[in-house]
Design a protein around this nucleic acid. Sequence first.
DNA 1: GCCGTTTTCGGCCCGACTGTTTTCAGTCG
Length: 577
Amino acid sequence: MKHREIAELFEEIADLLEVGGENVFRIRAYRRAAQSLENLTEDLEQLNRDDRLLDIPGIGRDLADKIREYLSTGAIAYVAEVRKKAPPGISELLAIPSIGPKSAKLLAEQLRITSLDELEAAARNHKICALPGFQEKKEQNILRGIEIIRQGKARRHLGFALPLAQAVLELLRDVPGVARAEAAGSLRRMRETVGDLDVLVTSTKPERVMQAFLKSRWCGRVLASGDTKASILTPDAFQIDLRVVEPDAFGAALVYFTGSQAHNIRLREFAVKQGLKINEYGVFREPSGKRIVCREEADVYKAVGLPWIPPEIREDTGEFDAAREHRLPTLVDLDDIRGDFHVHTDWSDGRDTLEQIAEHGRRRGYKYMVITDHSPSLTIARGLTAQRKNAQMREIAQMNTHFRGFRLLIGAEVDILDGGRMDYPNELLKRMDFVVGSVHSGFKQSKATMTNRILRAMDNPYVTMIGHPTGRLLGQREAYEVDLEAVYRHARETQTALEMNASPQRLDLNDAAARQAHEHGVTLALSTDTHHHAQLDYMSIGIGIARRAWLGPKDLLNTRTLDELLAWVSRKRDAHG
DNA sequence: GCCGTTTTCGGCCCGACTGTTTTCAGTCG
């Protein structure tokens, strides 16, 4: 992930230049380039080989040189240079909320503070309020900031943030005077993790909203509170920001509050060129200041001559060009989904019986659901022996005789063993409708070994889909080493689907990888990896990630009818079997 | 440092809240 490493270095350069009081636009250029690299969907080294680094937005001649330098030497000399000029430990200080470049510089130079511990000692001994422009309040804020850092201001995954958002919205919608309440920010864009929760409300009585919010059970500590804006920390240190606006500003405020920041900057630049100014209150004609009311988001985009852009793709990764040229993708919706490909039951490590899970699938309007209990090697998950698998298959076949317009498909999540062997014999796999092949062991294997293992599994004519292709668990386990480009190419060649696992801890493939796989012509499939029927809801998270990957209904296997699906599965079997 | 349906030079998004201030800089999103 070289692009991530370089993005971090560019961010560090921006931080250090800011402390040095450099030109703000030069600093912004580094930050914009870092964002661009972070969001990159193409392979950076490939772009370099094709001499297309300048195609990356925000990358010009100078930064392209620095990228090339890193790719060939593993370092950027300029980073060492700016580090040498900056006071030691300054990056640690900058990470603390309430400390920006000015404060960090002052603390580092005047008090020679180089670490969090030294800063805490200085604050406790009231050395900080001796500095010019610092008083006791600021000292207290610094101590709180240190505490927040120590508690670990980790980003949370959507499985945590989405239910919290729902609960907060329900509370706010019940406050008298509130007309609308929506979650915005990275949650609305369905980023795989969110750093905080942003909530937007319209109300005729803002003070009542503020009061309800600050008195709510989520308010562990108030970080800021004004007439129309408040920030709190929940008791377990998750930040929630609330903003109240009048109904005529709702559309403009929702755009502003949804971001991304890069998208907003681009949108406002676009407006400026047309003699317009966009802020969270509306669109304004300059220089008259005449306001164009924006009750809905579409009003904002319309004012600058663009169609409404779905929140999931507001990352400044090509959506403006697409919008201007009227080629925005039609993104997949939850309603397009006809089934789920990865579901566990109490035959292995799931909680529900076959009957229960089938009933929940039918209630969702699904036409099919693939039962994919584990194979014998995964003993910890009570993987099924061939004998038990046969018994389960008979039971499923029996159940299917009772269903109309719905079918349980016989499948399995089969371990991909060393060398790409499958954990069930082909004679058994052959009798299944849909086979998921997954890696559950040997995560530390070399990139070449792991890649080969997965490619060989795809060679098996009965392997329909590779489950969670990188094995990462958000915040818990890094992805194993694997050559994804090779996986994409081979998936396309062997007509093997790649899973977009919608479990919020996994989201694997993630948005960027899925977009890349799609560009390689790979068939993608959403599935929930459900171990309890409530987790069937993860499909909506998967939809969010698919939308972030610019995928439409046709790009996913789940939107096919049962007959189309079965035909798709047999194409590979007929070609290779 | 990037970028161009005005431009290869001269621009570069916008506002709320805080704390320390008597009009604003710093920080944040």
